[in-house]
Amino acid sequence: MKQDVLKHFDIQWLPLTGLIIFVACFSAYIYWTFKKSNKKMYDQASHIPLEEAHRASSLQKGHNV
């Protein structure tokens, strides 16, 4: 009786679909991420925290948004 849920659970496609989605997405991420042509972009992206916006000159303060 303890294994009732497992024994009677008849939606076998659910875990299978989950696994396929997981493997497919993960493979796609690996491919996109390690694609040679993307290296430069990701290198630039890694610098975003270090490239803060610069302080504005006093003349531009009126355009604050």
Partner: peptide, 28 residues
Amino acid sequence: MYYFVPKAANRPVYSYRLSIIHFWSLVF
């Protein structure tokens, strides 16, 4: 961590690509 460690160290994250893989695999 991905913001403050690079800021405090004044260095970009070691591997941005690894951070992407880190994100998706962790979330999944």
